[in-house]
Design a protein around this nucleic acid. Sequence first.
DNA 1: TCCACGATCGGCT
DNA 2: GCCGATCGTGGAG
Length: 198
Amino acid sequence: MDILPRAFYEADTLDVAKSLLGKIIVRRTEAGVLSGRIVETEAYKEGDPASHAFRGKTKRNAVMFGSPGFTYVYFNYGMYYLLNLVTQPEESGEAVLIRAMEPLDGIEIMRQNAGVAGDYPAVKLMNGPGKLARAFGINRDNGNGIDATDPNSAITVWKDRNQMCETEIVATPRIGISVGRDRPWRFYVRCSDAVSRR
DNA sequence: TCCACGATCGGCT
DNA sequence: GCCGATCGTGGAG
């Protein structure tokens, strides 16, 4: 597999959000290597009232205004961490939220991270943005501001040799936001179990 | 300082 | 479909 280079993240954020579908995120932990295939994303752009970057740079969202290809992780609803990848040239504050993945490697470790039984269905481990961060064991201490284009990083994104089962991409309004609902900036792969089993 | 509100999830009706 | 858990964050005051 080839690691996605910085240039991959410098395209328009809507294109990056779609291009990320089918790519592989690899998460290295002390317990072992975890990985999954991205099947659902959301784009957050400059001037977008639903984006954390909308009101400018703060301590929380600082990495959104940094280099493309870095991770942005934040804590939400008092209990979940959500994983984003920063896009665009520096300072634009745009990013792509990773909403769902299909687990590949380290599924047993994911179950341990999630605190579920050994017979818990693998497809349900990462079928939501809070759940995939939990399965990966990602929090703000270990997951925010990491360079995903550096092969030595604990979180990296790779281009898989294999194609997705089908490249049909569906666009819909984003989930869980109160403003910016008119923008169909959520993208998912129609054939994915991780999206359909919800 | 304070406080209302989330880029969610799972359980219950 | 609805609702509660749970707490960091930032905008208001």
